[in-house]
Amino acid sequence: MDARTAEPLLEISGLKTYFKTDDGTVRAVDGVDLAIGRGEVLGVVGESGCGKSVTAHTVLKLIQMPPGKINDGRILWQGRDLVPLDLEEMRKIRSKEIAIIFQEPMTSLNPVYTVGEQIAEVVREHEHASRREALDRAVEMLRLVQIPTPERRVHDYPHQFSGGMRQRVMIAMALSCNPKLLIADEPTTALDVTIQAQILDLLGEMKERFGMAIMLITHDMGVVAETAQRVVVMYAGRVVEEASVEELFDRPLHPYTQGLIRSIPRVDRAADQRARLEAISGTVPSLLDPPPGCRFAARCKFATAACTQAAPDLREVEPGHKVACILY
C-alpha cells in the first residue's frame, strides 16, 4: 500500500477501447481507471468479456487497430502518456520497460526458431550486445526460471517444451530486458494445477529478484487471493471495485464481487459445510448496446430504479477501497 503514496508506475484513467464490428461498436473497455505502484502485484479479475485482457493489451498497443481504437483516456507510464505514441516509440517500451506473457505460450513463440535465438533477439533489440553475449544471457535467463540444463535447452525449439516449460521460457524472455512492469495475461489458465502452482511460485520469486511490478490478469479468484496485493474487479468493460486483497475477500462491497466470491466452490471448507452455490443469475450484458446505468443492474439483487439511470462512478468509500455502486 505504501507503493501508492509515491507516483504510480502506470496510471490508466478513463480508458476506452472500442472495436468496430459489423453489428456496431463493441465497447470492450469503457472508462477504466487503475494504477500500479512500483513493485506491486495488482490482480485484475473478471469473467470473459469483462475487458481485462483488452485493457492490458491496450497498454502495450497490442490491439489490432482497426478494428480496435483507443477512443479516450490516458495511459501514463511513469508520467508519460503512451496513447499518442507511434509504433516505433512503443517498440522501445515493449519488453524493455513493460513486458507481457500470455495464456497460451505456444502462440507467442515462433516455432521455427530455437528459444535461445528468440530470447537473444529480444535482448539485442533493446541492448547493444553481441550474439554471443545475447545467447549467454538467454542461458542465464533459462537457468533463472529453473529450466534444467539450460545450456542444452537453449538450442531447443518451442515444441520440444511442455506447456509449463514453455511458460517458463516466456517468463525468461519477458524478463530478459529487466522490465519494470510485467503484464501476465492469464499465465496459468492453460496449465494443470500442480504446474500452475510452480509458475505462480516462480513469478513470486522473479518479482523478489527483479523488483518489477506485476499486473496479473486472471479469472481465478483463488489465484488472485494467493498472488496479488491489490485487486481490481472488472465487469462488462468497467472497474466495479478496487481494494487490497485482504479487504476485498473479507468485505467485498460490490454485489458483483460478493456474488463472484460466493459462487466459487471452496476446497478449503469442510465437505459437510456444503451448501448450494449462490449463482449469479443471467449473463453478462452485451457490450454492443450496454445498458445506460450500472451494467450489473440486470443481474443485481439490490438493484433499484436509480441503478438503471446513470452509471455509478468509482468512488473511494474507505481508505484504499473503491467501489462503483450507488449502495455506498
Binding site: 493489451h57 497490442l62 489490432q64 480496435g68 500470455f102 495464456q103 497460451e104 502462440t107 507467442s108 457490450l287
Partner: peptide
C-alpha cells in the same frame, strides 16, 4: 489483437 491471442467480446 496483433499478438494472435483471441479476446472474446460479447456481442
Amino acid at each position: 489483437p496483433a499478438t494472435g491471442v483471441p479476446i472474446a467480446v460479447a456481442a
